[in-house]
Design a protein around this nucleic acid. Sequence first.
RNA 1: GGCCCCGUAGCAGAAUCUGGCAUAUGCACUGCACUAAGGAUGCAGGGUUUGCGGGUUCGAAUCCCGCCGGGGCUACCA
Length: 825
Amino acid sequence: MSYSVDIDRKWQKKWEETKLYKFNPDAEGKKLYCLEMFSYPSGANLHLGHWYNYSLTDSWSRMKRMQGYNVFHPMGFDSFGLPAENYAIKTGIHPKDSTLNNIATMEKQLREMGATYDWDYELATCMPEYYKWNQWFFIQLYNRGLAYRKNAPVNWCPKCQTVLANEQVVNGECERCGTEVVHKHMTQWFFKITDYAQELLDCLPQLDWPEKTKKIQTNWIGRSEGSQVAFYVEKDGKQLMNDDGTPVKLEVFTTRADTFMGVTYVVVAPESELCEKLTTAECKEAVDAYRAATSKVTDIDRMSTTREKTGVFTGSYAIHPLNGRKVPIWSADYVIAAYGTGVVMAVPSHDERDFEFATKFGLDIIRVVASEPGAEDELPYCEKKGVLVNSGEFDGLEMHDAIDAIVAKLNSMGMGEKKINYRLRDWLISRQRYWGTPIPMIHCPSCGVVPVPEKDLPVVLPYDVEFTPDGESPLAKCESFINCKCPKCGGDAKRDPDTMDTFVDSSWYQFRYADPKNSDAIFDSSVVNRMCPVDKYVGGAEHAAMHLLYARFFTKAMRDMGLVDFDEPFQSLVHQGVILGPDGQKMSKSRGNTVAPDDYISKYGSDVFRTYLAFGFAYIDGGPWSDGGLQSIVKFIGRVEKTVADVKDIASSSYDASSLTSDDKDLLYALNYAIKSATADIDRFQFNTSVARMMELLNAIGKYQQLPAAKPELLRYTVEKLVLLLSPFAPHFTEEQWEILGNEYSIFNQKWPEYDESALVKDTIEIAVQINGKVQFKVDIPTEADQAAVEEIVKADSRLDGALAGRNIVKFIYVKGRLANIVAK
RNA sequence: GGCCCCGUAGCAGAAUCUGGCAUAUGCACUGCACUAAGGAUGCAGGGUUUGCGGGUUCGAAUCCCGCCGGGGCUACCA
C-alpha cells in the first residue's frame, strides 16, 4: 500500500490504542516542556496557519522525544472571547453551544494531523473548572493590592461595545476590529502590572527570545530617566491649598531639568482632574469649552505632529521654586493625562513643541542652554549638549552637570528629585461583554467592594442572558445573576457586571496544563515547579506586547505569592512566519488566494503536507505557497518509499566497518553529514535545510545503489537511518516504512541517529588555490597537511606558473581545510 | 521624527553569528533516457559583477560607513 491518508488513519488508530503519546511526568529523561500558543476554536477547519504552527512544533518535539527527553506537549483551547459572541448575535446560536461544538471539531482535526498531544491534559478556558481559578487569582491580586478599581479615561471601542487595554489599541484603533476608539471616563478594574515594570525590563536580556520581540517589550515598557520637579500654585491671587491645608504642589516629570530656569509656562492635560482644579471662575467657560472640544478630537488627529497647537489659559499661575517667577498655567491637548503626571513644564527655547505653542500664544521664550558659552544658537535649540546661560548660579555648567545641580538644589527644598518614569500603564481588564469570566466581586451599599468568598467560587457565567451589546454589560441585565447578598453583612448587593479580558485566561494557562484537573487549587506548585517554565514556546509575533507581557507579569506575581519558584514563564520563544498565497500576497478570501489544507491532505496525506511545510519555507519568515514545492515532496516521499522497497528484503543492516571501500566511505560521509546537519537544523527550527540534507542523502543513496560493488547491508543501514531522520516530519509514513522494513513498533521508541565524527574526516580533501583572493585552480591535499606541506604541493603544481603570469609570490597563506591564498606582485 | 530588521540565479531559499572555493535543496528552464504519443519517472546541464558606492583585510554575501529600495516597532512620552 503506497502512502496515502489511509496510512495516516492506520497509524493514528494504533498510536491511540497503544497509548504511545501518554505523558508520564515520572518517566526517565530530562523534562522538556514544548508549547504552542493555544488557539481560538473557530467554526472552520484548521487553517494553514494552524498546521504550520502545530505540525512543525510537533516535529521538533518528536525529535526531542527520540533524543531521550521526557517531552510534555499539551494542547487546549482559548475559548472565551468576542468571535463566539458576535457569531451568536448573528445566528442565535449560544456561544457555549457553538464553542463546545467547535472544540470537538478542532480536536478531531488535530488528531488527524498526527501530533503527539496527550489529550488527558487538554483544557478549555470557558469551562467553570478553568475560569474558577481566574476568579481565585483575581482575588489574590486584589488582596495584595495588585487589582484595583479606579475611575479613569479609558479606551472604548464603539463597535465591540467595550473598553480596551492600552495594548489593545493600535494607532488609535481597536486591535480586533479596526474601529477608531473613543475616550470615556469609567470606573474599571485594573491589574497593577506597573509594579513590575522594572523587573519586566531587567529579565529580558536573559530570555532566549527573538531580539525584535524583546525590543518591542522594551519600547512598550518605555523606561525614561529624568526628574520630578514641583511648583506651587497661585489661583485668584492666593496660594492654592489642598483640603488638608497643605499647599498644592504641581508635579511635573522632565528629562531636561537643566532647562529648568527657562520655564515660562506650565501645561496641564485638558482631560486630567487637575485641570478642573486649576481653572479660575473667569476662565471656566473657555476651559470647559476647550475640554469639550478636546474630547471630540480623535486620538489619531491628536497624535498628529503636524496639527496646529491649541490651548487655553486656566487663569492660575505656577510659582517657579528657584527664581520665584510667576508663570501662567495653560491647558493644551499636546499634553497627555496618562503619561507622567499629566503636567509638563514648558521651555520653549529648547523644545520644539513648546516653541511652537509659545510663538502662537505670545508666551516668553528665554534661552538657557547654549552650544558653547556665548553662542546665539537658533531657537529652539534642542541638542542635548551645551552649557547653561541665563540661569543664575548654574551658568556655565555643562548640561548633564546642570541637571544634577538643579535637582540637588530642588531636592534640598523638597521640590524635586531624580525619577524614573515608565510608559507602561496598568492593565485594564474589565470588559462590558458576556462571553468571559465574571469578575468575582460584589458591590454592597454598606460594605463597599467585597470579594466573593473562596468557597463560593466559581461565580458561574449564566447561560440565559440577553447579550446583544448596547454599551451596558449584559450580565447587569440578568436579574438572577446580578442580585446577590453581601458576604459580609448579608444585605442586598450586586455582583460586578463585567467580565475579564480574555488575555487573563491565557496569562497562566501554561501552568494549568501541568495539573489541569486539580479541583482544590489553581495547580499543585510542586508539579508546576517541576514541569515549568515552558522550555520552547511557539506562536505568532503579534502577541509581543500583549499576551507575552501579561503572562510574564502573572508569573512574577505568582512567584511573589509563593505559587511558583521561577521568574519567567517562557524560557525560549520562536515566532513562526506567515504563509502567503501563491501570488505572494497575504491570504484572504476576497483575494481568492487561500490554500485549504484539507484538500491537500485528503489527496496526498498529512505527511506530504507536513513535510512540505517544513521544506518550503524558512520557518520564522514564512513566504509564498507553491504547489510546485509541494509536488517536490510528493516525489521525495515516493523515492524514499521505493528505496525502502528495494532494501526491505536485505536481512541485515550491520556492515563490516573494517573493509570499507572509498565508495562506502563516501556514503557514510553523506549519512553522517546528514545526521549532523539535520539534527542541528531541526534543533534551531530551521526545518527547510534539515529536509534538504535528507534529500542530499537520498541522492547519495541513489548513486551508491547504482554501483556494482554496493554492499547491501550498508545500503539497508543507511536507508534505515534516513527513515529515522525523516520520522519527525512524516510520522505516519515513516512508521509504515519502519514496519515494512520488518522493524519493531514503534519507530518513535527508537533512538535518534547520532553521527560518527570519524566518518566525517576524509583522508584527502580538495582545496582551492587563490591568487590575491581569486580562485585559480584546485588541488587535492592530505587532510592533515600543514602550511609548509601545502605550499610544497601548490608550488609543484604545473598550473601555478600560468596563473602567476610572471608575478612573484610575496606571501603564502593556508587556511586549514579551506583554501590556500597566494599574495603575488 | 526616533529606533530596528531585510535586500543572494527567473522564483523560493542556504551560506551572514564565527570573513576563506558564492549559491546547498527545491521549483522553473534546457538536453538525454523510458514511451506510439503525452504524462509520469530517472539521469545530466546552464545560469550570479551577492541592491549601489566607499572602507578594513592576503581575502568581504558576511565586519564598518554612506546611499537607494522594502518591511517592522514606536511616536506631541515632556
